[in-house]
Write a protein that binds this DNA or RNA. Structure first.
Length: 463
RNA sequence: UCCUCAGUAGCUCAACGGUAGAGCAACCGGCUGUUAACCGGUAGGUUGUAGGUUCGAAUCCUACCUGAGGAGCCA
């Protein structure tokens, strides 16, 4: 038996023409008439289906013609070139065997479904064209990110998922506990007694691996994390999920410009690599999801990203010929409408905005000499908004300590973070990339729930 | 958490105060090369839930549930 994957047949068609092969897969659709029938078979290895032709000469012809969608079959037959047809090759079946039956009420019909409906059948949606393409991109893009950093000598760090510090201050966290919620131990002042909890203290799921990545950057120079991240925000938007993946590079001896250079190179690398690996998938996105996708991605690969300071951005917004719902003033945080205007109208390509007012940014960002801004950078992209957020970190012990005090954080939580500054704490920088937001940007899919296999959002943890 | 919109057949939708319909899917039959195949037929409903207004409610009102879009928070 010459068992072959559908991807091989498409990629090396000439080699297989005339050969007898066996393929195994699931029926995506089936059309049958009195004497001849057609099956589009998908074996999971490739975005496209392989057409199987079966004729009345086959003893189980009638039975095969009635098989419901998603029946698993094994087909043996000749590979034949079909220059006049849509597809380059097809298989003239000699035998077709049923490997696993399906049923007529299979919920994925051979027609267009809404994304909302497909979310309700997340266990079956990977079998649809769109999700087949999305999750292949997800896999290849993740590999491309690893490749980019590994080729440049970055160390892959596994930062902890359970964390004892609320250090990042990046929103609501998920509590992790083994305490009996029906019978919580109390202290004398009637507070919950976390000393009796598993770790002897309050712990949560991590909202960022950054602080731990800094530990490793100051030992290995260039490092990155790539791991799940958890936010318990009650967000109902197309861009937020409770569980998502974040990639966080951290580089010693690097300033904010080095940081942006890496971010820009990284994005261009991921796009080029993934486009090259998955041309069929991107052709599909370009045709059915977003007609301008390929042109836009190509533009990102070729163009230099814009770089402006926050102060310049405010000036651009102030003289913009349009009314914003939120009035523009120096010191405010940029609203979604402002970010969109900058990336979609002014630059029409990714733009780094740098040097934000320190009061609207995190405590660990390095203070600039002007005393009122920090060396932060956000990368804004059309359609998605903030794709990357990063900064040069405050490496000066006294300034960092002062900032922690100003924010009224508990100094005890930061003893090791401060100590990193004491022993050779050189300048260093890093950023966080929301992996799903990258996928949205790459595929044109506009809802984060549709680029995650089993999305977790408020009130939703099925599958 | 706030604002807006939507829940009608398995799916996508129509009916907008007066007898709930269509396309697709399913089922039965036909068709010698199809490409979301095509042609004919059959079956399929407590209109999201609970109240209310009305002679009469899918349609109007109230509450709740679910989903979507936008905002905030952020990646």
């Amino acid at each position: 038996m010459n068992l072959v994957k559908v991807k091989s047949i498409y990629r090396q068609a000439e080699k297989f023409i005339g050969q007898e092969v066996t393929v195994q897969g699931w029926i995506r659709t089936l059309r049958s008439s009195k004497t001849v029938g057609f099956i589009e078979l998908n074996d999971g290895t490739f975005f496209k289906n392989l057409q199987i032709v079966f004729s009345e000469e086959m003893e189980n012809f009638a039975e095969i013609g009635k098989l419901p969608i998603s029946t698993a079959i094994s087909v043996t037959g000749q590979v034949v070139a079909t220059p006049q047809a849509k597809q380059p090759v097809e298989i003239q079946a000699n035998t077709i065997e049923v490997e696993a039956s399906s049923h007529a009420d299979y919920p994925l019909q051979k027609k267009r479904h809404t994304l909302e409906y497909l979310r309700e059948i997340a266990h079956l949606r990977p079998r649809s064209n769109l999700f087949s393409a999305v999750f292949r991109v997800r896999s290849v893009a993740a590999y491309a990110l690893h490749r980019f950093f590994q080729e440049r000598g970055f160390l892959y760090v596994h930062a902890p998922i359970i964390t004892g510090s609320d250090a990042e201050g990046a929103g609501q966290m998920f509590r992790v506990t083994t305490l009996d919620l029906m019978n919580l131990p109390r202290t004398e002042t009637n507070e919950i007694d976390y000393s009796q909890d598993f770790f002897g203290k309050e712990v949560n799921l991590s909202v960022s691996g950054q602080l731990e990545a800094e530990i490793f950057a100051l030992a290995f120079r260039d490092v990155y994390t790539f791991a799940p991240t958890f936010r318990a925000e009650n967000s109902h938007t197309a861009r937020h999920a409770a569980e998502f993946w974040m990639l966080e590079p951290e580089m010693a001896f690097a300033d904010l410009n080095d940081n942006m250079d890496v971010a820009e190179d990284m994005l261009k690398y991921v796009l080029s690599y993934t486009l090259e690996e998955l041309p069929e998938e991107f052709a599909f996105f370009n045709q059915f999801v977003d007609k301008g996708l390929l042109a836009r991605l190509q533009n990102v690969i070729e163009a230099d990203f814009a770089r402006i300071t926050y102060t310049e951005a405010i000036k651009l917004l102030e003289k913009a010929n349009r009314k914003f719902e939120f009035p523009v003033a120096w010191g405010m945080d940029l609203q979604t409408e402002h970010e969109r205007y900058l990336s979609e109208v002014v630059f029409q390509k990714p733009v780094f905005v740098t040097d934000y007012p320190k009061d609207i940014k995190a405590f660990y960002m390095r203070q600039n000499d002007d005393g009122r801004t920090v060396a932060a950078m956000d990368l804004l992209v059309p359609g998605v908004g903030e794709l990357i957020g990063g900064s040069q970190r405050e490496e000066r012990h006294d300034l960092l300590k002062q900032r922690i005090e100003e924010m009224n954080f508990d100094m005890d939580d930061y003893w090791w973070y401060l100590e990193l500054r004491k022993y050779g704490g050189v300048k260093h920088s890093g950023y966080g990339l929301g992996f799903e937001r990258l996928l949205m940007y790459m595929t044109g899919v506009s809802n984060i729930r549709d680029v995650i296999p089993c999305p977790r959002t408020p009130g939703n943890c099925e599958f």
